[in-house]
């Protein structure tokens, strides 16, 4: 394969600068020793990270986001794993329609989903509760959990399951001893991707969050609406650091491009 010429490399460098600039600048400003927004050059300080301790609403929002992400990703997988097995293993009428329905939260703008959930949960009398947030997040992260599980289930050699059956395993034993271990990498990646999606969602959540159930992105957004100061950059820098960690984990154990392009059916391993 031929190499890139100098012009291509200049373009590439500028492109990468464009992509990382806003992320770098946030993290950089977060280390300012000043009381106002500035880009530190000689002095770096952790004062704004320490200051976070004095803003319990950020700490609380962070806890809400963590719990919400972890819980909704788990619940989403409880629904997604059997659904993925159904879509990958069985032929039945309406199968294509079903998979389109399950992936629809990717197509529907999150504003619309947020509005629909707000209307629905308010009518159901659970508006503003953590439970409502969990249900909404389960639906929104479901496609991500489903896609990776589906890719793993489709890519799996089915004769391995037949072998287990022929050796006398019943359906449940086969699932527990053979299928589950085989699709586990897909499930784990699906969980991580679902967690990130839940952890980062603003557009849908902002319709459902109330002061007690504000997630971190919602808290940050509302804060920025009022004023932008170094405090919110230190929050952002922390979020970026957490996401990067999960991201690198995902890349290591599954390959990031594969995680993000996984479509049920063609992402065999």
């Amino acid at each position: 394969m031929s190499r890139n010429g100098p012009a291509a490399l200049v373009f590439h460098t500028l492109f990468v600068v464009f992509m990382v600039a806003p992320i770098v600048v946030v993290c950089w400003v977060a280390f300012t020793p000043e009381g106002f927004l500035s880009i530190p050059t000689t002095n770096f300080s952790l004062r704004w990270f320490k200051a976070l301790a004095n803003y319990p609403e950020f700490v609380h929002a962070f806890a809400v986001s963590l719990w919400l992400g972890a819980l909704s990703s788990c619940v989403a997988l409880l629904f997604a794993v059997p659904a993925a097995l159904a879509l990958s293993r069985y032929q039945f009428r309406g199968r294509d329609a079903l998979s389109a329905l399950f992936l629809s939260p990717l197509m529907i703008p999150h504003v619309v989903l947020g509005i629909a959930f707000l209307r629905f949960f308010t009518s159901a009398g659970i508006g503003g509760t953590f439970l409502a947030l969990v249900i909404a997040h389960v639906v929104v992260v479901f496609p991500f959990a489903l896609r990776l599980t589906l890719a793993a289930a489709t890519g799996m050699d089915r004769s391995v399951e037949m072998a287990a059956i022929s050796l006398g395993a019943d359906g449940w034993t086969m699932f527990r001893r053979v299928t589950l271990p085989a699709i586990l990498p897909g499930i784990v990646s699906g969980w991580m991707l679902a967690f990130i999606q839940s952890f980062d969602d603003l557009t849908m959540t902002i319709f459902l969050a109330t002061p007690g159930t504000e997630t971190l992105p919602v808290r940050m957004f509302l804060y920025i609406q009022d004023n932008i100061d170094p405090l919110v950059t230190s929050v952002s820098a922390s979020v970026i650091a957490i996401t990067m960690t999960v991201l690198i984990l995902l890349d290591r154990c599954y390959g990031l491009d594969r995680v993000l392009t996984a479509k049920g059916g063609d992402a065999g391993r």
Binding site: P22, V29, L202, P217, F221, I224, I240, L247, I248
Partner: peptide
């Protein structure tokens, strides 16, 4: 990783970067 990674980084944080 550098180019598609930002996809998963909080959109609020990224937009804050542009505001700065």
């Amino acid at each position: 990783l550098i180019i598609i990674g930002p996809l998963l980084i909080s959109v609020v944080a990224r937009t804050l970067g542009w505001a700065l």
